[in-house]
Design a protein around this nucleic acid. Structure first.
Lengths: 342, 342
DNA sequence: GTTAGCACTCTCATTGGTCGAGTGCTAACG
DNA sequence: CGTTAGCACTCGACCAATGAGAGTGCTAAC
């Protein structure tokens, strides 16, 4: 595509991002490309429409950029890499002085992110399967119930109740814990499951505990795949003119509450630091008019989570991606992922 | 107030709950109280307006019931007690076969509640301060960090990282855990704090651990007051005609994300099983046009949490309260509170 | 005390007309 | 040949006028 067409398309996108109104040829000629007349712009716009980058709501309205247009724009963006703005710096400052649980850090990051950008934000915790067990301990709760606490290398804690035989006292549980802990540390959950199967034969511990752990690890795997995705600040969605229609907004918001479907979206982040799903690319019908920008963060060795922002397709992608990249790097830094912050 | 006035007011409320439109005298005379003419109703309505139960959006619209009207209605309702409907039974069935962590049970209850009723739902976890410690255990995480797990009598688990001196190995930590556990079990968090102060003098354990626990219990108290309130299904709000205006909806939704303010609302449930805040009674400006119905549930001895539904003031209070009561009782049952389910 | 009837008020949806923004096309220009 | 000026045309937004409908308050009769 000729350079001029690109510049015009860019101008249209910029203006549309700003105003959320169809952009006319005259606007472009006056505000963006003063050396060209509106008639010329009209011709080019007509071409761009034919190429599939623009759409016209009705015959005498301006043009509106397309998913295809944003995609072109974003792809260029992703290559050169956005640079942080002053606001980003502020956000970064605000947040660098906290150290705590993974859950808390990530959740409050999401909160801050949505408060700050006025978009809805999304957080996916790292998938638990990939985590390796650091320690494991049984804490007695009642005579027949114990809490199995598993600490993983990323500082993530998981726990579930397991039923234990009644004649095990605290000391016995501790002994079992130590033994299991020694043998299982460094393993992933998947490995634990198969290991335990063999193990059950030689059965040096309480068989009930073993089966408890078996059940737990299965349960944890299931839990790992669900639940660890949260959306916050979804009310920000309502601030956008494209969602002034209550019914539309309702549909989007309920789609955002359906974690399972969102999950599949976030999953597709095949190893890229930044990525964007534009409109229909999300694959979720209710989300054809909005985009999801995602950034990956890391915890420990190679465990990946994601944070993201959700807004109308008409997002200021450069800004949004810049902020996300910054925050995800800071997260990775704070959480001891292998990549350096900044 | 005369019985007839009450009946008319009731009819107005019923119709308004159904239609969300101002109710005229003719409607009442034809649909609800066929033995009275519209003129009579008009006279009564005029009286009711003077008494402060009704309002007129404009001179020739019908009447709209007031917070005061709903209050009268709900008070009567609370006395006689609503009865469960078929739908309630269905909800109850759906949910009786789960046993798990407090957090999970309560959260999924909230989810189910909002899905089912199509209102936004709210859950408050029991205040942690009131909880008594059952066991306490230190789980080593790294050389210098341990996870302090506190199990309370209600099966609620809290944990935080504490820094421990590097020359304590797992066994030493266990020994400390046992000792602390023995001395602290049965105490509330408040008590632990003051106890530890005295305790620090005789210092039989690692002083670092002690100060860690001190810090933690303070932290937990703070945490207890925040964070344990969640709202789900808020998208349902957008389904109501009174929130078809995007700006209004946005304000309400952001108010619902402000846990602190909501907290104060829920707190006022001074020991009643059911309660309702109608419109301005909520004390939250953004919520003058909606009501919050709350029901209490119990965990262990005397620890109280709350579940609730949030909708427009024009809620079908009888249904809503019935459902809430049912669910809260079931919750209390499942979670081993002292009151019996059903 | 209740009701029928009537005049009055106010909202809402409809209609028609105007305005302005924006397009596409054509013809002229460098 | 690309660019531009000009013009006719289209379409939505806005406005005012209009009329129907819903609902009220009041009065007088039952």
């Amino acid at each position: 595509m000729e350079d001029r067409k690109k510049r015009i398309l860019q101008a249209i996108i910029d203006d549309y991002v700003l105003t959320a109104m169809p952009v006319g040829s005259r606007t472009i000629s006056r505000k963006y490309l003063m050396n060209l007349s509106s008639a010329t712009i009209r011709n080019e716009m007509s071409d761009l429409e034919e190429l599939g980058y623009l759409e016209q709501p009705h015959v005498s309205a301006g043009r509106v950029p397309n998913a295809k247009a944003y995609r072109l724009y974003v792809d260029a963006l992703l290559e050169e890499g956005p640079k942080p703005t002053r606001e980003d710096e502020e956000l970064r400052q605000k947040y660098l002085n906290r150290v705590s649980h993974l859950e808390d850090v990530v959740a409050s990051t999401a909160q801050a992110l949505s408060d700050f950008t006025h978009y809805a934000s999304l957080v996916m915790m790292p998938r638990q399967e990939q985590m390796r067990i650091a320690t494991l301990q049984l804490v007695p709760v009642t005579r027949a119930l114990a809490l199995l606490v598993i600490v993983t290398d990323g500082g993530v804690i998981r726990d579930t109740m397991v039923r234990v035989s009644e004649d095990l006292d605290a000391d016995a549980l501790y002994a079992i814990s130590r033994m299991l802990s020694e043998r299982l540390s460094g393993k992933t959950l998947k490995e634990v499951q198969s290991l335990l199967k063999d193990y059950a034969d030689h059965a040096p511990g309480d068989p009930q505990v073993l089966s408890g752990i078996m059940e737990l690890s299965g349960q944890m795997e299931k839990q790992a795949a669900a639940d660890n995705l949260t959306v916050s600040g979804s009310h920000n969605i309502l601030g956008f003119p494209e969602y002034h229609d209550a019914e539309k907004a309702r549909q989007l918001l309920s789609a955002l509450e359906d974690k399972d479907r969102l999950m599949s979206l976030v999953h597709g982040t095949g190893g890229l630091e930044l990525m964007v799903h534009i409109g229909p690319e999300t694959g979720i019908p209710e989300m054809t008019e909005c985009s999801v920008a995602l950034a990956e963060y890391r915890v420990g060795q190679g465990k990946r989570g994601a944070i993201g922002l959700i807004g109308p397709t008409r997002m200021p992608y450069a800004r949004v991606l810049g902020t996300l990249r910054l925050v995800s790097r800071a997260l990775t830094g704070v959480l001891g992922g292998e990549e350096d912050a900044e």
